[in-house]
Structures are given as C-alpha cells and as structure tokens.
C-alpha cells in the first residue's frame, strides 16, 4: 500500500495552520516537479493545438470570404497597416540605426582590421537580411501592437460585441481577425524592408566614421553579390509569416474567452510569450531551408 503524505495538516492549533515538515521532506519532490513539468507541457500542447485550429479557421475564412464585404474590410486592413506599419516606422528606424551603429558598424570595422573585408557582404546578408531584420521587426510589432490587440479584442469579447456581430450576420473572424492578420503581415513585411535598409546604411556610416578602408561601392556591391533571389522570397515569406503569427496569437488570446479585468495582463503576457516562441520556432525552420540552399 502506498503511504499518503499531507504536507499541510488539515487541523489548526491556536488558530495557526500546522505544516507537517517531515511529510514535506518525505514527499516525492522530484515526482512533483515532473508532474508540474508534465502539466505545463500538456497545457502548452493544448494551447498550441487551439492556436493552430484558430489559425486554420482564420485562413479558411480568408479563403472563402476573400471577395465578400471588401468595402467594409479594406478600410479595417488599411487602419491596421497605418497603426502597425506607418506609426511604428520611427521606432523601427531608430532601432535599425542603433543596431547598425552598435553591431554592424563594429563588425565591418573588425572584419576590415583582420583583412576580411570581402566577407562583409555575406555577413550582412546572413545577420541582417536573413535573421535580425525580420525577427527584430516582428518583436517590435508584437510589443507595440500585439499586446494592444489582446486588450482590444478581450474587451470586445467581454462587452458582448462578438455576439452582436453574429446577430447582425457578420462573421467575427472576418471582421475582427482577418484585417489584423492581413494588416500586420503587410506592415511587418514592409517594416522589415525599411529596417534592413536603415541598418545597412547606418552600419556603413559607422564604418566610414572609423576610417575603415572600404568604399561605398565595394560595400554595397558585396552585399548585392551575396544576395540571392531565394533571399528575397524567403525574407518576404518570413516577415509575412511573423506578422501573421503575431496577429493570430494575439487575436486568439483576446477572443478565446471573455476576459475579466484581472486576466488581461496574464493574457497579454501569454500572447507575447507564445508569439515569440512561435516566431523563433518558425525562424528555426527557415534556418533549415537556408542551410539546404
């Protein structure tokens, strides 16, 4: 027979709860940890499955209602592009210039010092075009727009606006989620292009200030030579996917259930964590594609 331990006694003495210390020490702590880890993994898997189902439903609605209510949905998409693209341009530009100065400029200077100037183009393409550009831009969009999306949609759900849309014969996914997915995907892709251009230019500016023996013509021709057509295709796919992931995960966290005021912060954190993990996981898949190229 398996003995049962109760770390906390049911009874109370002098109004204070008794903790059964020997029972705590003898309890199967490692098993508790594995139980907790298992529960966390199962929860994470269930959430991932729900988000995947939500994404498939959204894609289905996008496909089947592509030509429906365009006069209503297009302004919503434009509003999302303005909000998550145009309004974020100054911030993304600042980050790009800072990254160019701090990282890329130093790297160019270092490569020049060791006589490896001919690798500048390849390094720039690998780090900025393939990796940092899409990922940093997606994180900025996630923090500035994804978190707000959770709160907006959570509030709309709590106020019964989703049911109101259904009562008017309007598909809530089509009206609330599709514009966000399309808008954020386009905005993230566009911002990524601006981010990469600003990083490349500011990187050379820093190298120029440090008197690196590299002419602008050499610098840009190396980058142009290092770029392949696949880079453009994969960059577009990656940045569009990142924007779509941020929109879908944020919308899911906002709409999954009516949020109480106290749950908003947790749902927002969940959206940020899940979006980041999903983007990084997708990034890993793209790395495999790059390695196979």
């Amino acid at each position: 027979m398996v003995p049962t331990f109760s770390p906390v006694d049911k009874g109370r003495a002098n109004g204070r709860r008794l903790v059964n210390l020997p029972a705590v020490l003898e309890s199967a702590l490692p098993r508790s940890y594995t139980d907790a880890a298992g529960r966390w993994l199962l929860d994470a898997a269930a959430t991932a499955r729900q988000i995947l189902a939500f994404a498939l439903i959204t894609l289905g609605v996008m496909a089947t209602r592509f030509r429906r209510a365009r006069a209503t949905v297009r302004p919503l998409i434009a509003a999302q592009i303005a909000r998550s693209g145009i309004r974020l341009l100054p911030m993304v530009g600042f980050l790009a210039v800072a990254l160019g100065f701090v990282v890329i400029g130093q790297m160019v200077a270092l490569l020049s010092h060791v006589g490896a100037q001919n690798l500048v183009g390849m390094v720039m393409v690998t780090t900025v075009v393939r990796e940092l550009g899409p990922l940093v831009t997606a994180l900025v969009v996630l923090l500035r727009v994804g978190a707000a999306t959770v709160i907006e949609l959570g509030t709309a759900r709590a106020l019964g606006e989703v049911e109101a849309l259904e009562a008017l014969g309007i598909d809530p996914i089509h009206y609330l989620v599709v514009p966000r997915v399309v808008g954020l995907a386009i905005a993230t892709a566009t911002l990524t292009v601006y981010f990469i251009l600003a990083t490349v230019f500011s990187g050379y500016l820093f190298a120029f200030v440090q008197d690196v023996p590299l002419t602008p013509g050499e610098y840009f021709s190396q980058i142009a030579l290092a770029l392949r057509w696949e880079d453009f295709v994969l960059l577009a796919l990656k940045s569009l996917s990142f924007g779509g992931i941020v929109a879908i995960v944020s919308s899911f966290q906002g709409l999954a259930r009516p949020l109480q005021l106290t749950e908003v912060s947790r749902a927002t954190t969940n959206a940020v964590v899940a979006s980041t993990l999903a983007c990084v996981a997708l990034d890993a898949l793209f790395i495999v594609v790059y390695l196979l190229m």
Binding site: A71, T72, G160, E161, L168, G169
Partner: peptide
Amino acid sequence: GGRLFNDLTVAQNVGLPLCYQRDCS
C-alpha cells in the same frame, strides 16, 4: 445599451450590417 461598437460612430454602427452585406460604403 445594445452592445454598440465603440470604435464606430452611431451612423456607422447602424450602417455596418448594410455595408457588410451589400459590400458598399
């Protein structure tokens, strides 16, 4: 309060189902 959409004006709220179903402005 009828669960109006707060990001739309009153006229936009009333016109939303018509605009959506008829695909017009």
